[in-house]
């Protein structure tokens, strides 16, 4: 078995363990490429059965339009249960990424996720986090425990030995499970290619209307994007390395219109992928750990 086969087998083993041992699992689905790989793995892990758990998308209402279309199409094609959760209180208060900065991420993503998990009473949530994304994630176990406040205690992680995963929790606690922890961005792309996995077209370069803001290329996805004085949308060949909320996901100029082009770009990438995710720049290298202690995925 080669490198990808071993990573695939590890992820599928974990998904089956969770389905067998955990009371009420859910798979978080963010519509990005990692989620596409996770969904694909889940379809394979339980074949010919459908995945024995629902999928959950926490919608901030600021996602790229193409993402939502893609989500609804895939759910229908595969016949899986796709739940959507929106923090309606946040919507009522008009929380948005322009005026509220990091509070926006907290309210519409972190708080919304906690609310959704509490609402349905999920005891285990699969996430597509990878250890190569960021330093504190590099230290996180495959099975990561959260107390009833959804907080992570990085200094006191349970030992995780061999494939003997301990899934025991108390009432109110939950587990975040990361089956593709050991994959790198290159692995993800090579697997998408090998398995021919559908992904949101935004990953491929195309002529798109963007504005340049703080060194990032922001897509003018709808008329909610307030244009600063002097900003004029211009058409550029861009693609997105990570997908989230469109005002927070910077595009990169690229000519990679297919998977091979992306893989070539990734292999020679000068910058790791989170650079284009504006969220991490708030407080330097320790920001993700802080966020996770507070319940961010």
């Amino acid at each position: 078995m080669n490198h990808l086969d071993r990573l695939e087998a590890e992820a599928i083993y974990i998904m089956r363990e969770v389905a067998a041992e955990c009371e009420k699992p859910v798979m978080l689905y963010s519509i990005g490429k990692d989620s596409s790989v996770m969904l694909h793995l889940a379809m394979k892990a339980f074949y010919p059965e459908k995945p024995p758990f629902p999928f959950l998308h926490v919608n901030t209402t600021w996602k790229f339009k193409e993402m939502i279309e893609f989500r609804d199409r895939r759910a229908k094609e595969l016949g899986i249960e796709m739940l959507e959760y929106i923090n309606e209180e946040g919507v009522r208060q008009g929380i948005n990424p322009f005026d509220h900065g990091s509070a926006y991420t907290d309210i519409m993503k972190t708080q919304a996720l906690k609310q959704a998990l509490d609402k349905y009473g999920f005891t285990a949530a699969f996430g597509g986090g990878r250890r190569d994304e960021e330093k504190s994630r590099a230290k996180e176990r495959l099975f990561s425990f959260r107390n009833s406040e959804h907080a992570w205690d990085p200094k006191n992680q349970r030992p995780e030995m061999w494939k003997c995963y301990n899934t025991e929790i108390h009432k109110g606690e939950s587990i975040r499970v990361f089956p593709i922890s050991n994959w790198t961005e290159t692995d993800i792309w090579q697997y998408i290619k090998r398995e021919n996995i559908p992904i949101v077209p935004l990953y491929f370069a195309a002529e798109r209307p963007v504005v340049e803001r703080d060194g990032q290329l922001i897509l003018v996805d709808d008329d909610r994007l307030p244009l600063h004085p002097g900003e004029v949308p211009q058409m550029k060949m861009v693609r997105f390395r990570t997908l989230g909320c469109y005002p927070l996901s910077g595009g990169v100029e690229s000519t990679a219109t297919d998977i091979d082009g992306i893989i070539e770009e990734t292999l020679s990438a000068a910058e790791s992928e989170r650079t284009s995710r504006i969220i991490d720049k708030d407080s330097g290298s320790a920001s993700m750990e802080k966020r996770k202690r507070e319940g961010y995925f």
Binding site: D132, E134, S136, A138, T184, A286
Partner: peptide, 21 residues
């Protein structure tokens, strides 16, 4: 490059196992 936890960087030691690829 490897000591990623805040406590590790503060204390200058490695507390938990880190994975690199």
């Amino acid at each position: 490059l490897l000591d990623g936890l805040m406590a590790e960087r503060e204390q200058g030691i490695t507390i938990d196992v880190a994975y690199r690829y």
